[in-house]
Structures are given as structure tokens and as C-alpha cells.
């Protein structure tokens, strides 16, 4: 009886994963190659695709650097000191998680767009943000903002501050403490946060779509390029370009599992 229940539960769970997760992934791969390798290669190596890939990589790298700096500073400030408003600060950092990406894009239009309060200044200095690359970068940073800090805060909180305090008493500088004491404990969480941030930054669609203006070869990221191809009924091409993003997604999944394994091992120590 118990065995039957176990088997039924596993079957139900596996069926769910198969239909909801594996089939969509398989769809991308099969459709990408359904007209042969050559068509796939043509779609992937087309100039507009390469331009979009370039912009996606640029955006991702900038978002990654900004969010890692922020993540390290924020996790340190929140877990290493007691101050009023710590809870509020943590909640504020999480805001981008609970806000629709479309609204994230909208906020930047309301600041930098034609009706925005910063528009006269930008106009006077001939700076373009909305419907240009800076807007795309800003929107991407916004939606991925909490990713790195959020992975580190719980871990640093549970470790406490004793070791850092001891080091500080002995006169170690901030940088030395971080490098020698804090970093070795959190490096896998940091890496995991960076991976999640990369995945989201490369794939961000809603926020970027609102601020991009969809100029082919100029403000088109890979996901936006996929959208254009799909809406123009170039199914095979759309899925071929998606293939690039799927490869990146699979790498992210593999690294994530390695990191999780390392974290588990760290816990048992």
C-alpha cells in the first residue's frame, strides 16, 4: 500500500515537471533545429542577432558589477551592525522582487522620459536614457537589484559577528576582515547570487521592453529580438535565437547545482 502511494506521488510529480518544465524546454530545442542546422546557424549569426547578443552581454556585465558591489555593501551593513531601521532597509531592498517588471520600466520613463522631471536637464546636456542603452541598463539593474544581497544576508546573519569583532579588536582593517574572515564563508552564496543575477539580467524582458523603444540593431536585447522574430511569424528563427539563451540557462542550472552541493557540504562541516 505504502509503496503504491509512493509510486503514485513520484509519478504525479514527475508528470508535472515533464509537462510544465521539460516540454517547453524541448519545444525550444526541437523548433530551433526543425529546419536543419543551416537555418539555425543563419538565424544565430545574423547581424541583428549578434548586435542584440552584444547589448545583452554589455547590460548583464554592468548589472552584475553594480549589484555585486551593492550586495557586498548591503549584506555587510545589515548583518554586521545594529541600527534603527534595519528591518525597513531589508524590506526596501526587496521591493524590486515584488514589483512588476513593467512598472520598473515605467518608473524610469516617469523620471527620464519626455514627461519626467529629469528630462529638461537631460535635454540641455544632450543625454538620452529612455529608448537608449542607459535606460536598458538601468531597468536591468533595477529588476536584479536584490539578487546578490539576498543570497548572502541570511547566511551572514546566522554566522554572527564574533569572528569579525575579534579581528577588529586585533586591529584588522575592513578589507582584511572581509577577505580573510567573511569572504571564505560566503563565497558560494555570493557565486550563487551572481549566477541568479546573470540569468535574470540576460533574460529580462518586461522592464527592458518598456524602456527600449525596440530599435533593431540599437536598443534590442536578445529577448526583445526573440519577441520581434516571433511576432513576425519567423518561428524557427525566434527559437534559434532562444537557443542561445537556453544554453546560457542550462549552464546556469548546472553551476547552481554544483554550488548547492558545495553549500550543503559546507553546512555539514
Amino acid at each position: 500500500m505504502e509503496k503504491a502511494v509512493k509510486g503514485a506521488l513520484i509519478a504525479a510529480g514527475a508528470a508535472f515537471i515533464f509537462i510544465m518544465l521539460i516540454l517547453p524546454l524541448a519545444t525550444v530545442i526541437v523548433y530551433a533545429f526543425r529546419q536543419g542546422l543551416e537555418t539555425f546557424w543563419q538565424a544565430v549569426s545574423e547581424p541583428y542577432t549578434l548586435k542584440a547578443l552584444q547589448l545583452t552581454l554589455l547590460t548583464t556585465v554592468i548589472a552584475l558589477i553594480v549589484n555585486t558591489v551593492f550586495g557586498i555593501a548591503a549584506s555587510w551593513a545589515i548583518t554586521r551592525y545594529h541600527f534603527k531601521g534595519r528591518g525597513l532597509l531589508t524590506t526596501l531592498i526587496d521591493i524590486p522582487f515584488s514589483i512588476s517588471p513593467v512598472i520598473a520600466g515605467l518608473t524610469f520613463i516617469l523620471v527620464f522620459g519626455r514627461i519626467g522631471w529629469a528630462y529638461p536637464f537631460l535635454q540641455a546636456h544632450d543625454i538620452k536614457i529612455v529608448f537608449a542603452v542607459p535606460g536598458i541598463v538601468l531597468a536591468t539593474i533595477f529588476v536584479t537589484f536584490p539578487f546578490v544581497s539576498r543570497e548572502m544576508i541570511p547566511l551572514m546573519q546566522s554566522r554572527g559577528t564574533d569572528e569579525e569583532e575579534a579581528a577588529a579588536l586585533m586591529g584588522a582593517s575592513w578589507f582584511t576582515i572581509y577577505r580573510k574572515i567573511t569572504f571564505p564563508h560566503i563565497k558560494w552564496s555570493l557565486l550563487y547570487g551572481i549566477i541568479l543575477c546573470t540569468a535574470r539580467a540576460m533574460g529580462e524582458f518586461g522592464a527592458v521592453s518598456v524602456v527600449s523603444g525596440h530599435l533593431r540593431g540599437k536598443t534590442n536585447t536578445l529577448p526583445l529580438h526573440v519577441e520581434i522574430l516571433f511576432n513576425e511569424f519567423h518561428l524557427t528563427q525566434a527559437f534559434a535565437v532562444s537557443g542561445i539563451l537556453v544554453v546560457i540557462a542550462v549552464i546556469v542550472l548546472i553551476v547552481r547545482n554544483i554550488v548547492e552541493y558545495k553549500l550543503e557540504k559546507g553546512d555539514e562541516r
Binding site: P24, T27, A199, G203, L222, P223, E227, S242, A249, R256
Partner: peptide, 18 residues
């Protein structure tokens, strides 16, 4: 277990068209 995270890793537009 590894597949559970797929929706976090796969870009939403790709998931959408798939």
C-alpha cells in the same frame, strides 16, 4: 530537483513563446 529552477534560469520571453 535541478529542473525546478528552470523557470528562474530560462528567460521569460523564451518561456513565453515556447
Amino acid at each position: 530537483d535541478g529542473f525546478i529552477e528552470l523557470p528562474f534560469a530560462l528567460p521569460t520571453a523564451v518561456a513565453g513563446i515556447a
